[in-house]
Design a binder for these strands. Structure first.
Lengths: 335, 335
DNA sequence: ATCCCTTCATGAATCGATTCAAAATGTGCG
DNA sequence: CGCACATTTTGAATCGATTCATGAAGGGAT
């Protein structure tokens, strides 16, 4: 094993380890001549800093973890993309953890991140049972920002989108189009985003007298949408429109409907949620509820660094964005 | 700061630090009574292992990094998904790094990963200039497997798909449909996957006398596809089919064509590459060249752990998968 | 020559977990 | 009782970078 350490570099350059460290961290404090001698030795030996040792001394790593529900969902990759520039320009390193909407996986990630003494955390918790773990991290001085989720009464910063309002927008849009029986597709119900969107939807249905069938799915992906359609097609009284909890579900549903020869939007309208790029490119361009994806990420990163910077005297901020209806062909039919 | 260390736990439990360490790492070597006393102290104090210190001692981290060209591309998330189970069941931790098809970003990631002394690396290099950096890691005893890329004469394991053949399949399919002038859309040309797919395409065009227009793009995403269409529509003699270097580009192209009122496949056929889930759900279901995505990831992880396990006496393996044509509506028109 | 500054370089102490030779304790047996 | 042996526990050494009090060297000013 040829692990060259600072000591080797120091010996090769004929200086002390303290000086080598200074060359790396405060080059201006080292005389020109010495510095270049040390740098030559570093290059010569192919020396690479050992980050573990550095972190051990520093007490903290420079990693900011982003814990998302599903990395395969473009919504979350866009959120991450939004957060990255700020984190990196602050000298941080981004690591993305995928909880896969599974509390156990989420917990495993949090355990590891805690052991790694990460600098901070942007997290979209799987459900409310995540709360105790999150409090634990927070209690161990790991600053965190909740993403796509209001903080509620918890003492954290958060960036969220008003999902109840989003649910209302979707349902109202379908009601405006003349639908009198619609389906809500999404799950599991324990995911707050799903619950909120459904709640908003239900409010409008109650107000407008639209009948609502709820199809609870096991996840928020293609397969879930497909399976819900299979169920729905078996019904006596079939809804004439579907509101899907996110675009992946909607695209899965769209695909299944098309396979069964059900015309969208003539025989069944669909509206999704998130307005990912694929929505506009879908078989039938998909109506959706748009969220400011990358802004969500950017703001979250901003709040995190504010908190890190301000230290103890920090007051938490809770930012809420408003979603917006994007109407496309998949809901263009008037009944 | 309340960073409790092993020393604190040891004091609370009335034992030495060595014993605490044993409780954590070799519990069977500690007497029942002592063990539970230590565990109580751990719970009591909310002690969390410090991974930096552990790694420093161990000399290696347990992180396996996967460096991909674009996390927003479902192809790569599927590859990662394929690799994860094996890595995690081996006690590893997965971290995904996005090079964004940018050599500089890739290099920054590699520098950091080297400082972190990662356990191993699965990487899809951006282009051939990445080679020197990769050799450097390898020279520092960081085992790595090339993903979606043959090792060529480099001494590494690799899992790849025969992209030249894939290019041939696509072009042959278009030729079979009667097209006599087709476009290839993709870039930058420095990305080997792009170059190979084009090479295969060119071979077939030469053999069959099909004219080929090449549109070199700056990246492999929606925008690239859209921009290429804008260019193409300006041409005197317009191709009747497009072969896009991946599905994202194809979907972007499809969207742009639709916006310009060009009918797919009647006025212009499209075939993509990767067969991501969205392909089948597209505005016009997209023909594509399928790659065994998650198998690629799984096999790569397997090779990596083989290499780690076998140590010095390891002989590199190069696995090549064959791609497969999936014909859908976007190329269904006979000319 | 002396004293004071400034500029650089030094090296021991430190972070926290792991390891392992050595010590302590307990058990069984002649 | 004493010796051999098994079972536990101990604590000092170690990993590698950073920090900082201390010291050395060089330059002016008097």
């Amino acid at each position: 094993m040829t692990t060259t350490s600072m000591k080797d570099v120091a010996r090769a350059a004929g200086v002390s380890v303290g000086t080598v460290s200074n060359v790396l961290n405060r080059p201006e404090a080292v005389a020109e001549e010495t510095r270049s001698r040390v740098q030559a030795a570093i290059a010569e030996l192919g020396y690479v800093r050992n980050d573990s040792a550095r972190q051990l001394r520093a007490g903290r790593s420079r990693t900011v973890a982003v814990v998302v529900l599903d990395v395969a969902n473009p919504f979350f990759t866009d959120v991450v993309r939004g957060a990255e520039p700020l984190i990196e320009s602050a000298g941080g390193v981004v690591t993305v953890c995928d909880s896969g909407e599974d509390v156990r996986r989420e917990r495993r990630h949090l355990e590891i991140l805690e052991e790694q003494r990460v600098l901070g955390l942007l997290i979209t918790p799987v459900d409310d049972t995540s709360a105790s773990w999150i409090e634990r991290l927070s209690g161990h001085d790991i600053p965190l920002v909740l993403v796509d989720r209001g903080a509620g009464r918890h003492p954290h910063c958060s960036v969220a989108v008003d999902d109840v309002h989003g649910g209302r927008l979707a349902a109202q849009h379908l009601a405006d189009r003349g639908h009198t029986r619609i389906a809500f597709v999404g799950g599991p119900a324990s995911i707050p985003q799903v619950a909120d969107r459904l709640a908003g939807c239900r409010e409008v249905c109650d107000e407008t007298g639209v009948a609502l069938d709820v199809f609870t799915t096991a996840g928020l992906n293609f397969a879930a949408g497909r399976e819900a359609v299979e169920q729905m097609l078996g019904l006596e009284e079939r809804p004439t429109a579907m509101f899907c909890a996110n675009d992946l579900v909607a695209l899965g549903a769209l695909q299944a409907l098309t396979m069964h020869g059900v015309k969208v939007p003539q025989e069944c309208a669909i509206i999704g949620y998130d307005d990912i790029d694929f929505a506009a490119a879908a078989a039938v361009p998909l109506s959706s509820i748009r969220q400011p994806r990358s802004q969500l990420g950017r703001t979250a990163a901003q709040l995190l660094f504010d908190e890190i910077g301000e230290g103890a005297g920090h007051t938490h901020r809770n930012v809420v964005f408003q979603p917006e209806l994007v109407a496309r062909a998949s809901t263009s039919q008037e009944l």
